[in-house]
Design a protein around this nucleic acid. Structure first.
Lengths: 309, 309
DNA sequence: ATCGATCCTTGCGTTGAACGCAATGATTTC
DNA sequence: GAAATCATTGCGTTCAACGCAAGGATCGAT
């Protein structure tokens, strides 16, 4: 049952409303003949008379009244749709889903998201916190509009929108002995109580490679799969951890934590990447949010973090 | 805001549902090229992408989802309309409004209406009880689909669908002295206690003319504007009244009242007419009900009333 | 990487529905 | 009964939608 001949119904509606085909003709801007024909045709296809012929003022039949109400329903429906569409185009409504590593939670992510949602209320953002491989998968399957991962990835169907260096750094409380050093080696670190990522995290692998290269083996007193735990462990004061700046942005900014570079461990070449599926054009809200992340990321790169600015 | 290009939305809907333009092409029976073009054009007029290009399986954008839901709403609306229309065509729904004189209330009217509504449940009938002049007016203004009046009317724009003779008769209880007579003259009547219509009723005028012709002046003991009161007055036994058969059909049939002709008063030429507006074609339910009244009226005419059969 | 299969897009010629103009028929008003 | 006002019908025109066919693009597999 295909949709009714849109125009015919419209003509009928106006003619019935105004009480005359001629008035409808003036209003619509279509010859009376067409209106007459369209209505006649509509009646033919419906098998029912819609208006009573042989009268000066047009009057609807009962079936006509039904059709009239039907068209009103169509108009109402369309209007609602147009409103929603308009809101969508104004970025007042919509959904964005992103996939990020746990490391991004914290000040960086919160700030960007807060700004965005403040500027575009009504946009629902769903952020899935996943391991890197799953992030890539989610982006590939369009389960997420874009993703934020550590390191750049080699997947051919992934487009890297932005990459910024995020060297791993020693993170500790300002009053911790390590904070007095300008920079540290892996060997220096082994003298402190360490909180390090467990095998589930990508950070773990990166550290293991560095350890192998430097032939230094770090012995953590706390191993966790949660970056939150690592951050808090450092903030408590006793322990030291290793994270990229971005993973502790807020604490670094307000001074509750400090960051010190690690030299000669080749850890400074780690980076974070903003990725999305190759060939997928993002419309409206997702594009906006991705741009916001991109700008923030690049701003970070230039200044090497607000804390350093 | 004209209705959307119906087909384009339909194509989009099917393509999105089936996940492929090709499948939609098979289902709809339209070349893939057309579908592609229609969707592209739809997107252009809406200014928003509806599907994500460059992918094997079609995926909707957020705006696409909106359009999808909109189309679903259209379909639901149309379906509801189609159902109502179908019911209307099967005479399972609709409205009929008729205008009748009070004289028709009672057995005749009830029987016809009962039969009709039993056969077509769901049809709403509104019956306006009005004086003759107002009935004609209502029919002329299409406030009533048709009307039932005493006497035939001379209005040029009224079509008389049926006219049957309804001579005025003497109506009284079976045990009343008048019931023993085979027929009565106006003069005979003047000897009984009479209940006669008041000046508001058309019956009154007819009687006045007869009185003038016969030079007999009837003195009623009860004057009323209600035919119901006249009928009940006769049924009580003491009084005699003058009505057409049809106005007391039920009572005449079951013997609670009897009718006797009036001779030489020219009252036997009165009639009732089924009228509607000239040029107005009645569709469905009104036509049916009118036909039912017409048939009943004519059946009455042939047998001169069930009581005489 | 390359090839083949499958799908979407684009170019071009064709068709039919909707249109405007003008004449005709119908209805109301003076 | 004539004028005025509508609605309908006939006819030629136009433009959107269509089918066919060629040209990308993508996905899966060798």
């Amino acid at each position: 049952m295909a949709a009714m001949h849109g125009n015919a119904l419209y003509y009928f509606y106006e003619a019935a409303s105004l009480g005359s085909m001629r008035l409808a003709s003036d209003k619509i801007g279509v010859a009376v003949s067409s209106i007459s024909r369209q209505i006649a045709q509509l009646e033919k296809t419906m098998g029912v008379a819609l208006i009573e012929r042989g009268r000066r003022a047009i009057r609807m039949t009962e079936a006509g009244r039904l059709a009239y109400e039907y068209y009103q329903g169509c108009i109402a429906n369309e209007e609602a749709f147009m409103n929603r569409l308009h809101e969508h185009r104004q970025l007042k409504a919509g959904k964005v889903s992103i996939a990020i590593g746990e490391g991004f939670l914290g000040g960086f992510f919160s700030k960007v998201l807060e700004d965005f949602q403040g500027q575009h209320p009504g946009i629902a953002v769903t952020a899935s916190v996943l391991p890197t491989s799953e992030i890539v998968h989610a982006v590939l399957e369009d389960d997420a509009h874009f993703g934020l991962i550590f390191n750049d990835c080699t997947e051919p169907k992934i487009r890297v929108r932005a990459t910024v260096a995020q060297p791993l750094m020693v993170i500790c409380a300002p009053d911790h002995p390590a904070a007095k050093r300008k920079s540290l080696s892996l060997e220096d670190l082994s003298t402190y109580d360490l909180c390090l990522p467990d095998a589930n995290l990508r950070l773990h692998q990166i550290l293991r490679e560095a350890e192998r290269r430097e032939q230094v083996w770090l012995e953590p007193v706390l191993t966790t799969s949660s970056i939150y735990v690592m951050r808090e462990a450092a903030r408590a004061g006793r322990m030291v951890t290793i994270l990229p700046r971005i993973a502790a942005a807020a604490e670094l900014e307000d001074g509750r934590l400090v960051a010190r570079p690690i030299y000669e461990a080749d850890l400074e070449h780690t980076s974070v990447s903003l990725i999305h599926r190759l060939g997928r054009q993002l419309d409206g809200a997702p594009a906006r949010l991705m741009a916001a992340f991109e700008a923030r990321l690049k701003g970070w790169s230039e200044s090497d973090g607000p804390a350093a600015a």
